[in-house]
């Protein structure tokens, strides 16, 4: 079992919880478990089957893009976090 911290704008989809217990051996499996527990999260994390560009997944202080991306292995007790990159433009 690992935990994942939910960013403020998505906490209304997790019953107000800032942290959720999740299971899975990889980041991809963890996100699958998360969106199975809270299906309304999915359209805000994924565009179709692709993780949205501005969704960043961290394990500890490290962005998984600098490891193996969604295939990055997750150990029991790991602390994951979803961090949005905030972007806008005219």
């Amino acid at each position: 079992m690992a935990t994942i911290k939910i960013p403020t704008p998505l906490r209304s989809y997790t019953g107000g919880n800032a942290e959720v217990n999740v299971s899975g051996a990889t980041v991809s499996a963890i996100l699958s478990d998360l969106t199975t527990q809270f299906p309304d999260l999915r359209p805000h994390l994924y565009n179709g089957d692709e993780l949205r560009n501005f969704v960043n997944i961290f394990i500890g202080d490290e962005d998984v893009r600098f490891r193996s991306g969604l295939d990055t292995e997750v150990e029991p007790g790991d602390k994951l976090r979803i961090i949005p990159s905030i972007a806008g433009g005219r």
Partner: peptide
């Protein structure tokens, strides 16, 4: 803009 919409998050206040 359309760029704002595709990159937006729910629940957030967007002050432009």
């Amino acid at each position: 803009s359309e760029f704002d919409r595709t990159h937006a998050w729910p629940y957030f206040a967007y002050l432009i």
